[in-house]
Amino acid sequence: MASVTITVNGTPQTREIETRVLLVHFLRDTLGLTGTHVGCDTSQCGACTVTLDGMAVKSCSLFAVQADGRSVGTIEGVAKEGKLNAMQEGFWQEHGLQCGFCTPGMIMAACALIERNPKPTDHEVRVGLEGNMCRCTGYTNIVKAVQTAAAATAAGKR
């Protein structure tokens, strides 16, 4: 067992956990933040994507103890005061989700993508999301969603 303090969506959370608890299971099972999903066991699908100190990472690919003292952002923290962010709006507007299971990870990865590359080409969006799998959409509308969000973000910053 180990004691960890991880700041999740801005709130420090201190818990006693087994060392073998993955960050994703800490979020889901210890904190009850079940928006972050598990879709594979080889760190391929990206459904568990969160931010760790601001960087998009797969929360199934590290143990919670390794995030001790660090800051984690999850899908539950993306909308502020009930207002969806541009990426969530983009996904809604462009129908970038169907079953919605990959969506939280996809949104976390896509937010990071446009932060690094505010005006991506469609191809750059596709390559940038290679760490996230979706079996429903064929990605066509996900690309549109990211572009819509990128445009809205750029307009908002202007």
Binding site: T34, E76, V78, L84, W92, G100
Partner: peptide, 20 residues
């Protein structure tokens, strides 16, 4: 092309999948 009402929960991590 009405926007989907289920998206409100799925976009914010509030879906209720079995493992949740």
């Amino acid at each position: 092309s009405v926007k989907r009402r289920e998206d409100a929960r799925l976009l914010t991590g509030k879906g209720a999948f079995v493992d949740d």
